[in-house]
Each structure stands twice: as C-alpha cells, then as structure tokens.
C-alpha cells in the first residue's frame, strides 16, 4: 500500500514528474492552480509503487510519498 500526495498549490506545471514516473500514472490536471499552472496529479493511485521517482525529479518539492511499513 502506497500513497502519493501532490501539494498542488506549489506545482508549477513543469511536467518533469510525468516523465520520471515509470508507471506513467502522473498526468497534468485540466484545472489551474492559484499560480496559474495545470498542476500534476495521480489518477490511478493503486498503480503507484511508491518508488518516489516523481518526487526526486520535482524541482518544487510538491510531492510526498508514503509507504506501508513491512511487517
């Protein structure tokens, strides 16, 4: 179980995360945020492996990644 959270208000719509995601599940939203950008978002949360590559590539510290602890 993993969860990826986008702090959408910080996103500048550069799309670097879209290309960094190996699962290709990050897309740009249709709406615009307060900064005037289409923010990045994840549509199929269940496909996320929690690899954090999107977060590593993000220049604006938009993304948080959480993973279930292994027992």
């Amino acid at each position: 179980m993993t969860k990826v959270t986008f702090r959408e208000e910080r996103c500048m719509g550069c799309e670097l995360c879209v290309h960094a995601c190996p699962q290709r599940i990050v897309t740009m939203a249709k709406h615009i945020n307060a900064g005037g950008f289409h923010p990045a978002t994840v549509v199929q949360q269940d496909k996320c492996t929690g690899c954090a590559m999107c977060a590593l590539m993000c220049p604006d510290v938009v993304i948080e990644v959480e993973r279930e602890e292994k027992q």
Partner: peptide, 20 residues
C-alpha cells in the same frame, strides 16, 4: 504508513520563485 519522501526539515515551506 510511513513517509518515504517529504520536504526536508531544513527547507522552509516557502514556494520557490524559480521558473517552471
């Protein structure tokens, strides 16, 4: 759930002014 990636504590929460 454990955070595996989040804003480092030494960074403030102010959004960067850099270009996209």
């Amino acid at each position: 759930m454990r955070k595996v990636f989040s804003k480092p504590a030494s960074l403030s929460d102010k959004p960067f002014h850099y270009c996209p």
